[in-house]
Simulated assay, not measured.
Amino acid sequence: MFVIRRAAKRDIFQVRKLLNEAGLNDRGVDKHLEHFFVVESPGENGSAARITGAVGMEVYRPCGLLRSFVLERASWNPKVGLQLIQILLAYAGHLQLSHVYLLAGASASFFEQIGFAEVPFADLPEDISGSEHLEHTGPNGTPMVYACFPSGQH
């Protein structure tokens, strides 16, 4: 059993710990925590619940940059991962963002299956390509985009 919920300020330490343990960039997470969701697993034997996954987005209207998608290896469940991404994309739609971009590593095929498409670096919007997250990550990975609304519906 798990719960996916909006991240709160109290979650920053656990989110950063998850990212660091996975070797992912945690720079700027604190600046965008309001656009993060976490997976919370119940504690054992009455202990407090703990965060076992997270996904976040940097918002640069009218677009967003998906970042920090992580689930603990021991807790990895494709269904939970898919739900976490779907919740973030629904949230992007709620914010009326037109597109969500990301920089995919080995997970590019996973994101293609949910509707992301590969794009050239040169096609990234300036706010996205100039984000602290992408500047720190560098050109490692495959830029991808997801259209939040089919053509003409936004």
Rank of each mutant, 00 (worst) to 15 (best):
V119S: 08
G93H: 04
S41A: 15
N45T: 06
D11C: 05
M144F: 09
A49P: 15
I85M: 12
T142E: 04
L88N: 02
I128R: 00
L66P: 03
V39R: 08
I128C: 03
V59E: 02
L89I: 12
F2E: 00
G115F: 12
S109F: 09
L134H: 05
H133Q: 14
G43P: 13
E34N: 13
N25E: 04
S98I: 01
A22W: 03
G130H: 09
H35Q: 14
V119P: 03
K79Y: 11
Q96M: 09
M144S: 12
T52W: 01
Y60K: 09
F121T: 07
L97R: 03
D127A: 15
E132W: 03
G130P: 00
A92W: 00
Q153L: 15
A147L: 09
K9G: 05
I128G: 06
E21M: 10
E135R: 13
Y101H: 12
K17R: 14
S47F: 13
Q14R: 08
H99T: 12
T52V: 12
L66Q: 05
F116W: 11
C148E: 07
M57W: 07
Q113R: 15
G93S: 10
G152P: 09
Y91N: 13
G28P: 09
L19F: 02
F149M: 13
A54E: 00
L97F: 11
G46D: 10
I87F: 04
G138N: 01
L124R: 09
A147W: 11
V145G: 06
L97Y: 10
L24N: 00
G81N: 01
G130Q: 14
N20D: 05
F37H: 04
Q86P: 04
G64I: 07
C148T: 13
S129N: 01
L33R: 07
E58K: 04
V70G: 03
P62E: 13
P150W: 02
G53I: 02
Q83S: 12
K79A: 09
K31L: 13
V29C: 06
G138Y: 10
E40D: 12
V3I: 13
I4Q: 02
V38F: 00
E34F: 07
E126M: 11
N45K: 14
D127C: 07
P150Y: 06
E58C: 01
A8H: 02
A54P: 02
A49N: 15
S131E: 02
G46S: 13
V80P: 04
F110S: 12
L102I: 02
F121D: 08
R50Y: 03
E34V: 13
P120L: 03
L82N: 12
C148W: 10
A106G: 14
H133P: 01
P62G: 04
V39N: 02
E40A: 14
